[in-house]
């Protein structure tokens, strides 16, 4: 057992490649045999990943899902920000410049619309739950933007740790729901071409959610959605502690 652990931990990234490979093989097998290809294999693999993350988090009490299990620590590196961004950029290889230009305006609008809409919805729900302090309402609204914008905003305007944690949870729910929900609703929202993918990325904004949601829908759309999504968190961090906080303070004077 100690021998196994030594080898696994020492070669953690290689272990991750093997584990993810087997997971994907199983997922594609089930997608093919059980659903006749109606559900994309990668959608099943992502769902399995999230399920494993839940049990990993419950078992270890950590914050990095299955990556907190020592034997699977390589998953943390493989699925971490560095390799994720590296692979996302690689998907842009072969994309035509003209496709990007066509959706430029709608893509830009969607980023601001996405941040504001998610914020308003999150803030409204905070009010419904009886929050009256403008800093708390703003932080929860910012959490509905993404789980990065929530704490950045909350810390900037001095919200309590409790509310900041809540905002992170709201952002996580959003991100996970985008991962799972996108392939299910893609057909109904016209998500089948580069332009709508750029709008989708700008509206959703959660890079992880968009990255996984589009991968499970149609990998060809990934570069377009990812392109706009990566501006979203920055715009959110810009608007959250400034304009949006001022507006909330005006509406709900402390």
């Amino acid at each position: 057992m100690e021998l196994l652990e030594t080898v696994f931990v020492r070669n953690n990234l290689v272990v991750a490649f093997a584990v993810v490979g087997v997971t994907i093989w199983i997922s594609y097998f089930f997608a093919d045999k059980l659903t006749q290809g109606r559900i994309h294999g990668s959608a099943i693999a992502i769902a399995l990943g999230l399920l494993a993350a839940y049990f990993g988090g419950v078992a270890t009490g950590g914050t990095r899902g299955v990556a907190d299990v020592a034997l699977l620590s390589g998953i943390g590196l493989m699925g971490g920000g560095m390799l994720r961004d590296f692979a996302i950029v690689a998907t842009a290889f072969g994309v035509q410049f003209s496709e990007l230009r066509k959706a430029g305006l709608a893509g830009g609008i969607s980023i601001f619309a996405g941040v504001i809409v998610s914020f308003v919805v999150g803030a409204a729900i905070a009010v419904m739950f009886g929050y009256t302090d403008p800093a708390e309402i703003t932080t929860i609204g910012a959490g509905a933007v993404t789980y990065i914008v929530g704490p950045v905003t909350g810390e900037a305007i001095g919200a309590s740790n409790e509310v900041i944690t809540l905002s992170v949870a709201a952002g996580l729910v959003k991100s996970i729901l985008v991962m799972i929900g996108t392939p299910l609703v893609a057909r109904y929202i016209g998500l089948d071409n580069p332009q709508s993918a750029m709008v989708f990325g700008g509206l959703m904004g959660t890079t992880s959610g968009v990255a996984a949601g589009l991968a499970a829908t149609d990998p060809k759309l990934v570069p377009y959605g990812a392109m706009t999504a990566t501006f979203y968190t920055g715009v959110g961090c810009l608007l959250g502690p400034s304009i949006l906080y001022f507006l909330v303070s005006g509406l709900f004077p402390a």
Partner: peptide
């Protein structure tokens, strides 16, 4: 990589 990313999300939180 996205599957690995899903597996390291803080789903429990």
């Amino acid at each position: 990589i996205v599957v690995a990313m899903a597996a390291r999300q803080n789903v429990a939180a």
